[in-house]
Nucleic acid binder design. Sequence first.
DNA 1: AACCTAGACAACCGCGAGCCC
DNA 2: CGGGCTCGCGGTTGTCTAGGT
Length: 290
Amino acid sequence: MGRPPCCEKVGIKKGPWTPEEDIILVSYIQEHGPGNWRAVPTNTGLLRCSKSCRLRWINYLRPGIKRGNFTTHEEGMIIHLQALLGNKWAAIASYLPQRTDNNIKNYWNTHLKKKINKFQANLDTKMTSDSTTYQLVSKNYTENSSAYASSAENISRLLEEWMGSSAKTSTAPDGNHKEFPSIMSTKNNRTECSSSTRPSLDYYRPQIDQEDKNVIPADEFESILSFNNLNDMAFEISSCYSSKRGSESSGTGIDQNDLKAENNPPLSFLETWLLDETSGQEVMELPQIF
DNA sequence: AACCTAGACAACCGCGAGCCC
DNA sequence: CGGGCTCGCGGTTGTCTAGGT
């Protein structure tokens, strides 16, 4: 077919955007709105291809983009959504409205994948027993995520078993994050949930090797996987789900605030949501396990 | 001080889907 | 129906910078 590659035209600039270019692009979009990217370079005089303009806007200049460090809450959401959805960064980003798919993808590749790999390596070296649950946790975080996510049944089973054998709550301090100047600033509205009835995760937690700087601190990892994070994620997903369905969900009589307040196992809820989404059922019920 | 290396993030590329004519 | 165009997504590469030697 031989479609000419993007930005192959002579005179098209590549590389990092300058502040001047950003200003031109933002000014144009403020006036005309995003879209019709083909016309942007022509009308602005920018020596960039339309695709580059679009990416610059979406990934960097668009209002509402939160930049800087990810919070542990966001990390937890990404980890579990990645396990559920695979490398569907756009889908994952839809649950983190302040983050772009590119941002999440980069963060996954540079931070989270390593963290999980280190955690797994640590588990492999430290845990020699043949615990069923260890195998479950280990399996959960090392299998190819895409293949793993391909089976809703498998997801359901693993998550349910995993939740059934976890998890101890730990306070997850939010990491510092910088807000993009002059853009929407949103704070996490987090609700603490009691977890007194849940068994300790200590058994599955990696042993701490003080001399090994590569080992992820157990507290940090646990905070990522903490019940609070999972519960928040379930709540946020349920909110999105609710907004997707609009009046349908109100017909179920389920109050999303109630969902959060009642300590429902979040992954069971996720599982329900996932399966429900797949089957197209109208009624969403929350199993009471604890 | 110079060089090297790894980490972090921005930007690019190739491909596919959807739309329009 | 088919071809061209545009947009969006996911993978990959490029660039910058901080830390180490």
